[in-house]
Design a protein around this nucleic acid. Sequence first.
DNA 1: AGTAGCAGAGGCCGAGATAG
DNA 2: CTATCTCGGCCTCTGCTACT
Length: 297
Amino acid sequence: MAYGRDWAHFTRWCRLKGVDPLPPSAELIALYLSDLAAAPDGARALSAATIDRRLSGLVWNYTQRGLFLDRKSREIIAVLTEIRQRQARPPARKEAIRADEILAMTATLPHDLRGLRDRAILLLGYAGGLRRSEIVGLDLRSGDAPGSGGHVEIFQGGALVTLNGRTGRHEIEVGRGSTKRSCPVHALEQWLDFARIESGPVFTRVSRDGKRALDTRLNDRHIARLIKRTALDAGLRAELPEKDRLALFSGHSLRAGLINSIGLDGRHDPKSPEPSTADAPPRRERFRMNLTRAAGL
DNA sequence: AGTAGCAGAGGCCGAGATAG
DNA sequence: CTATCTCGGCCTCTGCTACT
């Protein structure tokens, strides 16, 4: 339970201040919260959202002890409002990546097995607007390999990515790109072919010499590192210092990039009505919304 | 609308494999 | 052997979403 750590942190703070965490006192909590926002003794200042969540943790902990902390008390409301006003700023956004930048990034990859894999990851992730965890969770065929979060099927017209999300499954159609160099489906086929992958995790580890595909699923952390490294190598935003450039690109950038380039609102809408299937061609032949072309690949 | 809870993202560090 | 590289484990922070 993550709330256990909230409690531990709070009681440590109380010890340092020489006060008793029990019984709950709104004044004490308010003091604690404002300390979190003020970054005491060199610690990093927490954001209002985190402080809010910490407060939830404390309320929960008090409740577990049969006690009641009123989070709506005047003192707490006042300090939270003050923190929010002080920190008011537009939410931090990761830099979105454009299609030409993705191509520049893939161009920095070598032509060994690892390079094929990473190229497929970048292009597929970008064209499908996938999260890093969604990318590494993909299986070939619908299987239940450990850690599976969905699967991908390849057809003539493109690839169909099916994600098993928390809120149900949804499908993403990834069409073919305008050229082989920019085509996510081609990159995927190349990787699967040379890695001799016929089932199980789509993206696996590669031996260090880049000649053999291993059978363990890739960790999602690799995606984040891949994006940052290739963005640096490709010289994107070269006018910024390296530290800023690293902070700018994250594993989220693939998703954000697609959203920008085709103007979606950032979420797949599972409630949007499926087109009538009465006389539509079979699902796998449709690829009605070519995200790949829309994304500029 | 506000809250609780979940899960995604990044930092740090170390394990394991391989190159020299 | 040591150096280097890739990647995963574990942690914290925080954004997102379901629930009330």
